[in-house]
Write a protein that binds this DNA or RNA. Structure first.
Lengths: 136, 136
DNA sequence: AAATGATTTAGAATTATTCTAAATCGAAAT
DNA sequence: ATTTCGATTTAGAATAATTCTAAATCATTT
């Protein structure tokens, strides 16, 4: 999720479970979900448990070896402001703030061209620490 | 989620449940989750059920009166490409494609300045129809 | 070989969301 | 005013995603 791994300074120990999970994510081009990783990892390591897959994904994420693509943890949010706009999300307290960065139209066109998609909407989220959490 | 309401042409019927849900979302500045909407709506309409809150949120979303802020439906995804990059997500089949739009650094700085956040990462997602789904 | 700390396992618990079927509601027709 | 009919709501079950817990296992050091 973040680009700054949390345990950079700690030694990275890759158990065979963590290696299997890493290998699965690396070999997949389709951005697998945790449950897809679990299925694929079982082909390599039949005794691996669901919890270990989640633990390993978290470990590898903190070690900076993989990335989690998500919006926020937990539930989706709703917004009465329906015009296009962006958000900033505090990774510590979960606070979500509206933001307008303009340049969305050109960006959407560019992204659509690059991806070959027919565009519907574009969404930009800054993740970081809000002013209050920063003080701690 | 999309900027294009799905039932523009149909008549928008606001029952008292839908009105209560809409009012809650409108009056909240904090981008409430479905369960927060449920709690707040019960203050107005004590008999409202969880399912109705979800139904109403969906209805209002399709009517273009509110927006859902989320990444994708269902589970989070994992990615072995750890460098910063963007994604295009097919709203029909769920396919997720990597994309690089550069301009991230300036954008992150701008977003950080506007929001007052200490930036950690920035994530841009184009939602639309992939080439295959477009053909249908 | 014993001790220690970290990791894994199985499964329960929790949280978020969707589904189902019966009950209710409101508008239109009688 | 009553009946009819389709849409909506309700309660609760079902499903899905994720986290938690406690016991078992593993690897490393002593």
């Amino acid at each position: 999720m973040s680009n700054q791994p949390k345990n950079q300074t700690e030694t990275i120990v890759l158990t065979k479970q963590r290696e299997a999970v890493l290998q699965v994510v690396r070999e997949s081009t389709a951005h697998p979900t945790a449950s897809e990783v679990y299925e694929a990892a079982r082909a390599v390591l039949p005794s691996i448990s669901y919890a270990t897959v989640y633990n390993s994904l978290n470990f590898l994420k903190n070690a900076g070896l993989i990335t989690e693509i998500s919006f926020a943890s937990g539930a989706n949010r709703f917004d009465a402001i329906t015009g296009r706009h962006d958000h900033a999300l505090c990774t510590n307290c979960g606070k979500l703030v509206d933001l307008d960065l303009e340049l969305a139209d050109e960006l959407m066109t560019l992204a659509a061209r690059r991806s070959g998609f027919e565009p519907q909407s574009i969404q930009l989220t800054l993740k970081g620490l809000c002013e209050i959490c920063r003080a701690n």
